[in-house]
Design a binder for these strands. Sequence first.
DNA 1: TCCGAAAAATTGGCATACCAAATACCAACA
DNA 2: TGTTGGTATTTGGTATGCCAATTTTTCGGA
Lengths: 241, 241
Amino acid sequence: MSSKEVVSKRWQSGENGLTIERLPAKESFKSKAYAALKEAITHMNIYGSSEPMLLDERDISERLGASRTPIREAVAMLEQEGLLRAVPRRGIMVVRRSKAEIVEMIEAWAALESMAARLATQRASDEAIAELRTLFKKFDLSRIERDRCDEYSSANIAFHQALIRLSGSSLLAAMTENLFFHVRAIRHRTIFEMDRAQRSASDHLEIIVALEARDADRAERLVRDHTLRLAEHVENHVDLD
Amino acid sequence: MSSKEVVSKRWQSGENGLTIERLPAKESFKSKAYAALKEAITHMNIYGSSEPMLLDERDISERLGASRTPIREAVAMLEQEGLLRAVPRRGIMVVRRSKAEIVEMIEAWAALESMAARLATQRASDEAIAELRTLFKKFDLSRIERDRCDEYSSANIAFHQALIRLSGSSLLAAMTENLFFHVRAIRHRTIFEMDRAQRSASDHLEIIVALEARDADRAERLVRDHTLRLAEHVENHVDLD
DNA sequence: TCCGAAAAATTGGCATACCAAATACCAACA
DNA sequence: TGTTGGTATTTGGTATGCCAATTTTTCGGA
């Protein structure tokens, strides 16, 4: 067997149980630009003004100290992800979602998370579920001051993310994370009203109980209805456009 | 009113019923490369050999008659989409999903489609649901010859896509389409066995009945279980790695 | 024949330059 | 003063070239 074949085999898969991942090396400008842009978009009040938010390639490349090429690649990725939209001769703009789109996202989220709850009742360990209860006590939403909207929002999302992790499906986690990103962006507007917090807390507790009881149907339904209520709330009480 | 304002108004929105959309312009090399690569990947028997399938930037740019730059942007997009993975000094490889990942995809699909079914019972028109029945009759899966695996697979997916469209959520449609892409790639292996066709057909019929009855819970459950059975089937009877 | 080191070739990341389309600007004319 | 035609500028798309990290090949010595 030639040396080449041996090397090739090593890389294919670790039949020896030792999978060698190429170390991250030094991050490329492309990834750095991607991260920087996403970070910037995250902390941007997208729905603050109604003016289109434009980005300029050359400007960005100067700020980041790189050429346009890696920036363009990063933009292409974010465009694929649905966060940006590049229009020729017009600029790169941050995509603003319509209320209808946000509602669809929350509905999709409800679908994924309710499935996660179902799977969690079948797969999560008792210990893992117990941790969820701990998290619940620690960040008891009803205790958060009524004016700390962001904190409420964060704690809320933390609970949901923890729940999704219980499913053991990294895909569900990844997909919902993406949805959270968009939904989170309108938290200023949604005013995720604090009077919903009480309801949220009790909902969450009910969900935990259902998980502990390993009641798949009930857990699924509770999660679904809980999130669909948010969708309905946004539909009825949020004005974006 | 000045001429300029008239023109401006015309472009804003067609209150005169004439909406002028900016013409698509000529597709950029970037989009063409993206489409070409995706097309190529689609018709590639990804799980045919166990050898890593490598792509070469320079080779691709020559074939497409463009420079490396737009190809690299297209690759960056496909990488973001999870279809490719570019490793420095090693090449661009088509991502091969593990069985576990495929199963997770089918579970996510089940989540999204069952939600679509629920929404469809609330939103789809009787006519739209009726069309689903038409489609079902036309492509009655039980009639497809037992050796036409691809045809079965296509008809199957067509039914599911039609169902999802009934929900009216373009997001659910987009997300599942992405999942279908990956699941479809293993159709040769899954042998989506034809003996499952009979079951599939009756399942589909039941689903249609539930939709017609506007029974949200039942429609949701039928769709979920139907797809989760596929996940279980893949889990138990498919060997990828 | 085998091994290892050095040289050569690959290859992806990045910078730069150029181009064409589209807009902004401006001056001349009605 | 307002419109118009043309020019300057901006900006995204693409091509090209260089570089550094790696891999592959070569080749001399054991």
